[in-house]
Deep mutational scan, measured.
Amino acid sequence: PKDQAKKEIEKALRNGDEEKAKRLAKKYGISDDDWKELKKRVS
């Protein structure tokens, strides 16, 4: 599910692991808009 994916990506971003977050986003098909939203929430 997308919500689970977003949680994992957000966690990776919080850990400062943007490479992992990007890989997860690609793997789960997270859209650019969702990606920006996640980045905003974390920063």
Score class of each variant (00 low, 15 high):
Leu13Gly: 00
Lys27Asn: 05
Asp3Pro: 06
Gly16Asn: 07
Lys26Asp: 08
Tyr28Ser: 03
Glu37His: 04
Ser43Asn: 13
Tyr28Met: 04
Glu19Met: 10
Gly29Cys: 13
Lys36Arg: 12
Lys27Ala: 09
Ser31Glu: 04
Gln4Tyr: 13
Lys27Gly: 03
Glu37Gln: 07
Ala25Pro: 00
Glu19Gln: 11
Lys26Met: 13
Ile9Ser: 00
Lys27Val: 08
Lys26His: 09
Arg23Cys: 14
Gln4Phe: 14
Lys6Arg: 12
Leu38Phe: 04
Ile9Thr: 02
Glu8Cys: 12
Lys39Phe: 06
Lys36Asp: 14
Leu38Ser: 02
Ala12Gln: 04
Arg41Glu: 07
Ala12Ser: 04
Asp3Tyr: 11
Tyr28Ala: 05
Arg41Asp: 05
Arg14Ser: 04
Lys39Trp: 06
Arg23Pro: 00
Lys2Ala: 12
Trp35Tyr: 15
Arg23Trp: 12
Lys20His: 13
Ile9Lys: 00
Lys40Asp: 15
Lys22Trp: 14
Glu10Asn: 03
Ala5Leu: 08
Ser43Leu: 15
Lys11Leu: 14
Gln4Thr: 10
Ala21Leu: 02
Ala25Met: 05
Lys11Gly: 08
Glu10Trp: 08
Gly29Met: 09
Pro1Trp: 12
Lys7His: 09
Lys6Met: 15
Lys6Tyr: 15
Asp3Thr: 10
Ala12Glu: 05
Lys36Leu: 14
Ala25Gln: 05
Ala25Asn: 01
Asp3Asn: 09
Ser43Thr: 11
Ser31Asp: 06
Lys20Met: 13
Pro1Thr: 12
Lys27Gln: 11
Gln4Trp: 15
Lys36Glu: 15
Glu10Gly: 03
Glu18Ala: 05
Lys27Tyr: 14
Gly29Ser: 07
Gln4Lys: 11
Glu10Ala: 07
Gly29Asp: 08
Val42Arg: 03
Leu24Tyr: 03
Leu24His: 01
Arg23Gln: 13
Gln4Ile: 11
Gln4Gly: 08
Lys27Thr: 06
Ile30Leu: 14
Asp34Phe: 04
Ser31Gly: 06
Lys11Pro: 00
Ser43Ile: 11
Lys6Val: 15
Leu13Pro: 00
Ala12Leu: 15
Glu10Lys: 04
Lys20Ile: 08
Lys40Trp: 12
Lys20Cys: 12
Glu37Pro: 01
Ser31His: 04
Arg41Val: 10
Glu37Thr: 05
Arg14Asn: 04
Ala21Glu: 00
Ile9Glu: 00
Ala25Trp: 03
Asp34Glu: 15
Glu19Lys: 10
Arg23Val: 09
Asp3Phe: 10
Ala5Met: 10
Glu19Phe: 09
Glu19Trp: 10
Lys36Val: 10
Lys7Pro: 03
Lys20Ser: 10
Ala5Lys: 07
Ala25His: 02
Glu10Asp: 03
Lys36Gln: 14
Lys7Phe: 11
Pro1Gln: 13
Arg14Pro: 00
Lys39Val: 15
Gly29Ala: 09
Arg14Tyr: 05
Lys39Glu: 06
Trp35Gln: 02
Leu24Trp: 03
Gly29Pro: 01
Leu13Glu: 00
Lys40Tyr: 10
Ala5Asn: 06
Glu19Ile: 10
Asp17His: 09
Lys20Phe: 14
Arg41Asn: 12
Asp3Gly: 09
Lys7Ile: 13
Glu18Met: 11
Arg14Thr: 04
Gly16Ala: 03
Asp3Ala: 13
Asp34His: 03
Ile30Arg: 00
Ser31Pro: 04
Ala21Lys: 00
Lys36Ser: 08
Lys40Ser: 12
Lys26Leu: 13
Gly16Gln: 04
Lys22Met: 14
Gln4Met: 11
Val42Trp: 05
Lys6Cys: 14
Glu19Pro: 08
Asp33Val: 07
Trp35Lys: 01
Glu19Ala: 12
Ala5Gln: 14
Glu18His: 08
Asp34Arg: 02
Asn15Arg: 11
Arg14Gly: 03
Lys6Ser: 08
Asp33Phe: 05
Lys7Asn: 12
Leu24Pro: 00
Ala25Val: 06
Ala12Arg: 02
Leu13Gln: 01
Trp35Glu: 01
Asn15Glu: 15
Asp3Met: 10
Lys2Gly: 13
Tyr28Phe: 09
Tyr28Glu: 02
Leu38Val: 05
Asp32Trp: 14
Ala5His: 13
Gly16Ile: 02
Glu18Trp: 12
Lys22Ala: 09
Tyr28His: 06
Ile9Val: 08
Lys2Trp: 13
Gln4Arg: 12
Asp34Lys: 03
Asp32Leu: 06
Lys26Phe: 10
Leu38Ile: 15
Lys6Gln: 09
Glu18Gly: 04
Tyr28Thr: 02
Leu13Ala: 01
Asp32Glu: 12
Asp17Gln: 09
Leu13Met: 04
